[in-house]
């Protein structure tokens, strides 16, 4: 007997259950299909403007820095400003994400832009989040041809752009958005829920930022006039 059958057999014997019991099967199938919502905290259930404000407050509590800009066209100069303020070289790495590519980077003549996955030598990475979660100040990033996962972890500084219109009240709403985009039961290879910069408290429980991932997380929330 294979280990698989042995384990499943033991589970059934211990439970006194039958694999073909239609009631058990139905319970499982319906839960998987319906994916019922559980308890959703009231905290994030707010009108859009307050939801975005809560997202910013929560993200700052997690020791991320947050800037709000009006329109995608303002992003490149905001990125350049962040680099200057932090005495960083004028170079960033990013994926080929369309929302990022369509921004007016050419206006930042001094800024060097590398595309594609990070090999660990980049000081700053720029990503675009699929959504944000107001409840906890969390960013939701999905991997794909245009969104390398390495950019989320290898550079020292991670700048993440998110549209204010994509900020959801709770985690479940953000997950529902992924389901909508990829199909029920389907997922991209990696979904990264990111809540603040990397940290460790492993030595004497003292919290230090920048353990293995980015030491700094900078979030640019883009308000697009007319979009909500």
């Amino acid at each position: 007997m294979s280990a698989r059958d042995a384990i499943l057999g033991k589970i059934r014997r211990s439970l006194g259950a039958d694999a073909s019991d239609p009631a058990r099967r139905a319970a499982v199938t319906s839960r998987l299909e319906l994916a019922p919502l559980g308890v959703i905290p009231a905290r994030g259930q707010l009108p859009q403007a307050e939801r975005v404000a809560l997202f910013c407050t929560m993200a700052k509590k997690l020791l991320a820095s947050v800037e709000r800009v009006s329109g995608y066209d303002a992003v490149p100069e905001t990125v350049a400003g962040y680099l200057r303020n932090n005495n960083l070289p004028a170079a960033v790495r990013m994926g080929a994400d369309e929302r990022l590519s369509s921004m007016p980077w050419v206006e930042q003549r001094a800024l060097e832009i590398s595309r594609g996955p990070s090999d660990g030598d980049d000081a700053v990475g720029v990503s675009h989040a699929g959504s944000g979660v107001a409840e906890t100040g969390t960013l939701v990033l999905t991997s794909g041809g245009d969104n390398p996962t390495t950019i989320n972890f290898l550079p020292d500084h991670h700048i993440v752009v998110v549209s204010a219109a994509d900020i959801e009240g709770d985690l479940e709403s953000a997950l529902a958005k992924i389901r909508e985009r990829y199909g029920k039961g389907e997922m991209p290879r990696t979904v990264n829920l990111i809540s603040g910069p990397s940290r460790s408290g492993d030595i004497e429980q003292k919290l230090i930022l920048g353990a293995h991932g980015p030491r700094a997380l900078h979030i640019i929330v883009v308000d697009e006039p007319g979009v909500s």
Partner: peptide
């Protein structure tokens, strides 16, 4: 913490066209 810093969901190997993973 309200949420740990990294909650990572992984499904299968890298997909065709994925630059890393």
């Amino acid at each position: 913490q309200e949420m740990s810093v990294y909650t990572t969901m992984s499904t299968g190997p890298r997909r065709p066209g994925d630059p890393d993973g």
